[in-house]
Structures are given as C-alpha cells and as structure tokens.
C-alpha cells in the first residue's frame, strides 16, 4: 500500500493541520496527545471533512485533489472507519449493524465474508443481540467487524482501545493483531498510547498541533514499551 497525504491544509479552531507525508507501512500509527488533530486527519482521509487544500491518494486512486476539484464521496472511498465512540447504530441489532455496509466479498478466498469476519472476531454469539446489551469489548469487536464487512481498501482506527480498561485492552489487542495479519489491510491507527503503537504498528508518525514532527519505527521512538 502506498498512501500520499500531500499539501494538507485543514484549519481547525486553534491551529491548522498541515501534512505532507508518504506512507508505505501496513500499519501506521498517528501518535500524539489529545487535541493534536489526529481525528480530524482521519476524517479528512475518510472524506468527512473538507480541507482548504489536500491531495490524498491511495495506491493509484486519487481520493481528494482540491487543486483539480476532485473529491470522491465518502460512500465511494471504500474506507472502513472505526471511530473512538464506535458509533454502532443503536436502533439496529448487531446483525443489522454488520450487514449495513456488507458487500459481496471481492476476495475469492472469502476473506471478507460474513462467516469469516464473525469467526475471526468471535462474535457469532452476539449477532442477534441489541447493541445496548453488549459489553465494551464486544462493542469494539462488533464495530471492527462492521468496518471489515464493507470490504475496505484502508482501515481507519481512531483510538480503538482508549475507552477500555487495561484488562479489556489485553483482550482486544490479539483481535487487532489478527486483523492485521489475516486481512493484510493497510491501517491508519490513531493513538496516544506508546504501548499500543509498539504492539501493533510498523511505523509511527508523531503529530503535535497539527504537524508531523517525527516519524520512525516504534522501537526507535519508544524503546521497548510493547504491551
């Protein structure tokens, strides 16, 4: 996977997100303190925000090019997004949530099939339940499964473990590793936790007040702080 985020200028209330990076790692952490502009950057990649200026390309496909007036609608970007609050649809069952964006599996091996995804995330027993009756960890897995079932070309994970206690984090991390290793999807992983970034990511981009100030392997930036 090759992703270009070029000439990004996205004004926020207190500062402007400005980025000019090329990403080739499979799992890339966007690391930084709260309020650094990480979620805004993910929203921009997903097409949920408009920047003053941006060029976003995923492999050969240009998603946004403000200079040429190109803005691929969110629904056609084929980007799976797991937001920080998970945003499971409260009026639908888990099955309803999972099937909402479910597409015909483009992979002949059935990688993104309903059966394979629920088996990978071990949520087979949850599908008939309402989302209000799920625990935090179960909601997390349901939200991940919903994003995967849309057969995305890129997965955006916005602090997926931030609302979980350390015990639940330990339970969810193996599922994230499974997604990373089985689906081989490029992932942009927003976090402010060095342990998570070390455990899951190949490369870390450090963001402060809207700018990438450092990049490198997790071990180079954090030492050995893996969870």
């Amino acid at each position: 996977m090759k992703m270009l985020l070029k000439n990004i200028v996205l004004p926020l209330a207190d500062f402007t997100v400005e980025a000019d990076v090329e990403i080739e790692s499979q799992v890339t952490a966007v690391f930084g303190p709260s309020g650094a502009g990480k979620t805004s950057l993910l929203d921009l990649v997903a097409g949920l925000r408009r920047a003053r200026s941006a060029f976003i390309q995923l492999d050969e496909r240009v998603l946004t090019d403000t200079a040429r007036g190109v803005e691929t609608p969110t629904r056609r970007r084929e980007i799976g997004y797991v937001p920080q609050d998970l945003a499971l649809f409260p009026h639908l069952s888990v099955r309803g949530n999972l099937l909402y964006g479910c597409k015909k599996d483009p992979n002949p091996s059935g990688l993104f099939s309903f059966e394979h995804v629920i088996q990978t995330l071990e949520i087979g027993s949850l599908v008939e339940r309402g989302v209000a009756n799920l625990s935090g960890g179960e909601k997390q897995r349901a939200s991940l499964a919903r994003a995967l079932l849309s057969s995305p070309r890129l997965l955006l994970l916005d602090e997926p473990l931030s609302s979980l206690d350390s015990k639940l984090k330990q339970q969810i991390i193996p599922y994230l590793k499974k997604i990373r290793d089985e689906f081989r999807l490029p992932i942009l992983y927003v976090t402010h936790d060095a342990g998570e970034a070390s455990a899951l990511c190949d490369e870390v981009l450090v963001m402060e007040r809207g700018r990438f100030v450092r990049r490198g392997k997790p071990a180079e930036l954090f030492g050995s702080s893996e969870l």
Binding site: G47, L48, G80, G101, S150
Partner: peptide, 8 residues
C-alpha cells in the same frame, strides 16, 4: 457519517 463510510 459512519453510515456514509459504509457505502450509504
């Protein structure tokens, strides 16, 4: 917004 990312 999330519904849109799911193709709606």
């Amino acid at each position: 917004q999330i519904a849109r990312t799911l193709g709606a």
